[in-house]
Amino acid sequence: MSAVAPTSQTRRPREPSRRGMRLLAAGLTVVCIIELLFAFEQTHAMAAWRAARDIPAPQLDRLWSNAASSLGIAPPLRADHADIPLAGAFSAVDPEQALSGVAFDGAVIRPASEEPWRTEPLRIASGSEPSGDGQTFARRLRAAPDAQIELRRIVDASASPLCGGQSPISAALLHRGSRVDLMLFRSGAKSLCGTWTFEAR
């Protein structure tokens, strides 16, 4: 038998197109660049961390305060080393004020002659912030502008005569040694129910 001559229909293995190879090369180039950038940033981040780790805490605080003030950012409030948890029973400084006493037990506030208020933390406010009644917390509570005001949400409170028959929705607390100030708020335009000051029993 005579050999069959190859015809034009004989298929040859298909080679990758040049366009596909160029796309693959471009994709790999982008991935390599990104990896290099990550490695570069990580190296600088580690160097910055090592440098910051060796800076004394007071100097680091000053650096943060300067940077924050230049950017118009309020510096974070920190607990003072002398601060102690707010707990125990307190009596009214003014015996004629509407709320004669209050006790603190973790997240629960127990006002005298009232149902207990279960609270949730909101945030720490600065004394220089507005208290919602046209004054700052500092002015209302006769405190320093950088005083730390603890804000709490009151959960499912009943109607209270302290808030004109409405339910209190939040409280602001300023704890100074044996003294604690309590501001109570309800919903509405005139949200402040009142401000009371107590001393530890």
Rank of each mutant, 00 (worst) to 15 (best):
M1T: 10
S2I: 09
S2Q: 13
V4D: 13
A5S: 14
T7W: 01
T7A: 13
S8I: 14
S8W: 11
Q9N: 12
R11N: 05
P13Q: 11
R14C: 11
R14F: 08
P16E: 06
R18M: 07
G20T: 02
R22P: 02
A26N: 09
G27A: 14
G27K: 04
T29L: 15
T29D: 05
T29Y: 05
I33S: 10
I34R: 10
E35G: 10
F38T: 08
F40W: 13
T43V: 06
T43I: 04
H44Y: 11
A45R: 15
A45W: 08
M46I: 13
M46D: 15
A47N: 15
A47W: 09
A47P: 03
A48Y: 11
W49Y: 12
R50P: 01
A52Y: 08
R53Q: 11
D54Y: 04
Q59L: 12
L60A: 15
L60H: 07
R62Q: 15
R62L: 13
L63V: 10
N66V: 11
N66T: 12
S69V: 02
S69P: 03
S69Y: 09
G72E: 01
G72F: 01
I73S: 03
A74Q: 08
A74D: 04
P75F: 00
H81R: 06
H81N: 04
P85G: 04
G88D: 01
G88S: 03
A89F: 02
F90N: 00
A92W: 04
P95K: 15
A98Y: 04
S100M: 08
G101E: 10
V102N: 00
I109W: 00
R110T: 12
A112E: 15
S113D: 15
W117Q: 07
R118C: 02
E120C: 01
R123C: 07
R123K: 13
I124A: 11
A125M: 12
S128C: 12
S128Y: 07
E129K: 05
E129G: 05
E129D: 11
E129P: 05
P130K: 08
P130F: 09
S131T: 02
G132M: 05
G132I: 02
G134F: 01
Q135A: 10
T136P: 06
A138T: 08
R140N: 07
L141W: 10
A143K: 02
P145G: 09
D146L: 03
D146S: 12
D146V: 01
A147C: 02
I149H: 03
E150F: 09
L151T: 00
L151M: 15
R152C: 02
V155Y: 01
A159D: 13
P161C: 06
L162N: 04
G164W: 01
G165L: 08
Q166R: 14
S167Q: 14
S167P: 08
P168M: 10
P168F: 09
I169Y: 12
S170W: 09
A172T: 06
L173F: 08
R179Q: 14
D181K: 08
L182I: 04
M183K: 01
M183C: 05
F185L: 09
G188R: 08
A189N: 09
K190S: 14
T197D: 01
F198T: 03
E199T: 14
E199H: 10
A200M: 13
